[in-house]
């Protein structure tokens, strides 16, 4: 398989996953804000922190109000990570491998891009936004399902799943990093209700709430949420699960030794680090290490295969 083709498949999946995660994050934040009292100032800035960093945003907008942030994250062509840009990139990558991926996949990726372009207004406005963003999520999950159902599970498919899992793991760490920082761990009384709500929203950002409740049962608390999102091997959006996937996928590919080694190292670091017990500053540093580790895996994949 040509390196370029492998790379296109990898990035197509990465961008699709990014668009899906961004859509979910915006939807969850909209709901969260409706539940919080106006005195709890959370707002939309954390979403910027999770997805892209503030610098790029404040170059273009004065304040992080809902309209600006949503516009920046959904349709702004100047934001490389906006949903529209992610879908554009996913489509361009799919287009170059159009003759190699199943034609239904090309049609779906193309259709997702076209409908997002058409629905730009709906994606921005409050009233229809939820439905429109859910549409992006659904479309991407359809693509994932179609791939699983009709594409030969060959090297190309392995690269698609590699891209998806690395992006997913990356997003999980970003959400935890930012969200846990804005949550004060030792609050009593009224505020703790809201803390509870916020941890719930963290889980929901990863579609993890229901699965968490089934698995943990206890009332929502920080160590358990962290443990679930970082270490639960069977939850598909937990960091450990994505790393397991990456490792298994790499093992299907030729010349995988170094990339597998980097992945195993990070797995060990993650499990041994007991992140659920860490205080905020330590957790922040730990997450930094995790992100560096994932960058190393991606670099190794890039160096070996692309």
């Amino acid at each position: 398989m040509l390196s370029r083709v492998a790379s296109n498949m990898f990035w197509m999946a990465r961008y699709l996953e990014r668009a899906e995660n961004t859509a979910r994050l915006i939807n969850v934040n909209s709901h969260l804000l409706m539940d919080l009292p106006t005195t709890v100032k959370l707002g939309w800035e954390p979403i910027i922190d999770i997805l892209s960093g503030r610098d790029g945003f404040y170059e273009r907008y004065d304040k992080a109000d809902e309209a600006s942030v949503v516009k920046y994250l959904v349709t702004d062509k100047e934001n490389p990570g906006s949903i529209i840009n992610s879908l554009t990139q996913a489509r361009e990558n799919a287009r170059t491998v159009r003759e190699i991926i199943p034609s239904e996949i090309w049609e779906q990726v193309n259709g997702l891009y076209l409908s997002a372009m058409q629905n730009r207004q709906a994606l921005l406005g409050r009233r229809r936004r939820y439905e429109a963003l859910s549409g992006v999520i659904r479309a991407n999950q359809t693509i994932t399902g179609t791939l699983a159902g009709i594409m030969t599970h060959d090297e190309g498919y392995a690269f698609i799943r590699l891209g998806r899992n690395l992006e997913r793991g990356d997003m999980t760490t970003r959400i935890i990093d930012v969200r846990s920082a804005s949550l004060l761990p030792e609050l009593d009384g009224d505020q703790s209700t809201f803390e509870n709500i916020q941890w719930m929203s963290v889980l929901k950002s990863m579609s993890a709430y229901q699965m968490y409740r089934q698995k943990v049962r206890l009332r929502i608390n920080r160590p358990d949420v962290l443990k679930f999102l970082l270490l639960e091997p069977r939850f598909p959006r937990s960091l450990l699960h994505t790393l397991h996937q990456v490792k298994a996928l790499l093992e299907e590919l030729p010349r995988h030794e170094k990339a597998v080694e980097a992945t195993e190292k990070l797995e060990t670091q993650l499990v041994d680090g007991k992140p659920q017990c860490l205080e905020q500053q330590e957790l922040h540093e730990f997450i930094d290490d995790m992100q560096l580790g994932m960058i190393k895996i991606a670099e190794q994949i890039n160096k070996t295969y692309f």
């Binding site: 390196s3 370029r4 030729p254």
Partner: peptide, 24 residues
């Protein structure tokens, strides 16, 4: 046949043309 772009190919010092694949 493989469909390649210029960046998929390179010429080594031995004047042989190679394409970049995931196997090398």
């Amino acid at each position: 046949a493989e469909l390649v772009e210029g960046s998929d190919l390179f010429v080594d010092d031995d004047n042989v043309v190679y394409m970049r694949t995931i196997e090398g």
